[in-house]
Every structure is written in structure tokens, then in C-alpha cells.
């Protein structure tokens, strides 16, 4: 058990009743809340959860494609975040760090269930000769959704972070812990694959 003295706390003074403050903690920034949570405050973490759960669920949903499994992934990701919090050094924004945890949780779920549940091939074939433009458009959107789901996981994750979440290539590369050229290659391959499947669908 190697120990040194605790680092000096440079944050604002801690009020005696943390919970009372955090129930109205909307004005506190992530950085401060992360530091309090790292010191063991579940109330601070709760504010972070309520602030970021939308993002975590949205990404999980895009990576997984169905709501029930996406909720499992989102829950696991946020709980893992609590456990991993002491190791979070603030090199990136808390939200970016959550992206990485969410992606890993989704990858884990898909690896576990791969033998029984194929991700593609079970989609209903859209009707191709319906006259209404809207129905066709809806079917096209559904086909695109299926095409995104059918991408290899690494390509899908790259595409989701860059195209859907608006991360820069550099941010996405750091989030997924791959070199930037690799990340760029994955996004480009994903876009080419989507283009091809949408042409095949027409």
C-alpha cells in the first residue's frame, strides 16, 4: 500500500450539505462535479448523469439499433463511468470520455451476443412500388438505418461519432484510441459502403 499525502483541493469550499446544493447543481460545471464525484460524492455524479444520459443513450442507440439493448448499454456505461472515475484525468472533456466508455460497452454487448443475434439480414424488405413519395422516403430511411447497422462495428462507431455526434476526426480518433488516419479511413469506408448499399436498394 503505497501512499502519499492527498493532493490539495483547489476547488471551491464544500458546503456542509452537499446534497442540498446538488439538487440544484445545474450551474456547476462538469470539471467541478467530476472532482467532487472523484472524492466520493454520489450527489455530484447524479448531476453529471442527468446532464449526460441523453448523449450516452443516443450514442448507444445508434451503435446498437434497438432501445432495450441500448438502455442496457447506457446503464452499464454510466455505472462503469462511476467505477472508472478515479482514473479519469481530465485530459479530455467528460462527455468525450463518456463516448469512449459507451462505445466500449456497446462493443462488449455485441461481442457477447454475436452467436445468437445477427445484426443484419432480418430487416423487413421494403415495398418498392408504393406510389406515395413519403412512404418511399420512409422506407429509404429505414434501409439507410439498416445499412448503418450492417456496418462493421469499428466503422459504425467512427461514423456515429463523426457524422452523428459531430466530433472532429481528431477528437473521434482520441476517443476510440486509434491513430487519426485509421479513423479517417474507417469513416471513408463506412460512407462508401453506405453509398453502395443505398444504390443497391434503389
Amino acid at each position: 500500500m503505497l501512499m502519499t499525502a492527498p493532493p490539495p483541493d483547489t476547488g471551491p469550499a464544500v458546503p456542509a450539505d452537499l446534497d442540498a446544493v446538488f439538487t440544484d447543481g445545474r450551474h456547476l460545471d462538469d470539471e467541478y462535479l467530476v472532482r467532487r464525484a472523484q472524492q466520493g460524492s454520489t450527489a455530484a455524479f447524479e448531476v453529471l448523469v442527468s446532464r449526460h444520459q441523453e448523449q450516452v443513450f443516443r450514442v448507444a442507440h445508434r451503435l446498437i439499433g434497438e432501445r432495450a439493448a441500448a438502455e442496457d448499454v447506457a446503464q452499464d456505461a454510466l455505472v462503469s463511468a462511476w467505477r472508472a472515475l478515479p482514473g479519469f484525468r481530465g485530459d479530455s472533456a467528460f462527455g468525450t470520455w463518456l463516448h469512449r466508455i459507451t462505445t466500449n460497452a456497446a462493443r462488449q454487448l455485441l461481442t457477447r451476443r454475436r452467436p445468437t443475434a445477427p445484426l443484419d439480414g432480418d430487416e423487413p424488405v421494403p415495398e418498392r412500388d408504393l406510389p406515395e413519395e413519403r412512404v418511399v422516403a420512409a422506407a429509404r430511411t429505414e434501409a439507410l438505418r439498416a445499412a448503418v447497422r450492417a456496418l462493421p462495428f469499428d466503422q459504425r462507431a467512427a461514423l456515429v461519432l463523426v457524422q452523428f455526434e459531430g466530433l472532429s476526426y481528431e477528437e473521434a480518433a482520441r476517443t476510440l484510441e486509434v491513430p487519426e488516419p485509421t479513423l479517417r479511413g474507417r469513416v471513408a469506408r463506412a460512407r462508401r459502403a453506405l453509398l453502395q448499399s443505398m444504390r443497391g436498394w434503389q
Partner: peptide, 30 residues
């Protein structure tokens, strides 16, 4: 394709009710 991907990106995916509570329940126990 780019337009359609943007459309897909704009689709809302609201988290299920109670997600945060369920997370905090597990965190609390831990």
C-alpha cells in the same frame, strides 16, 4: 446520402424514463 445521414442524425432518441434513477441505484450500492 449526406442529406439522409443528416436526417438520421437529427432523429430524436430520448433516453427511457428512469434511466438516471436506475444508474444511481446501482452507483449508490457500489
Amino acid at each position: 446520402l449526406d442529406d439522409e445521414l443528416r436526417g438520421l442524425a437529427a432523429e430524436p432518441a430520448p433516453p427511457p424514463t428512469g434511466l438516471g434513477d436506475r444508474v444511481m441505484e446501482r452507483v449508490g450500492v457500489m
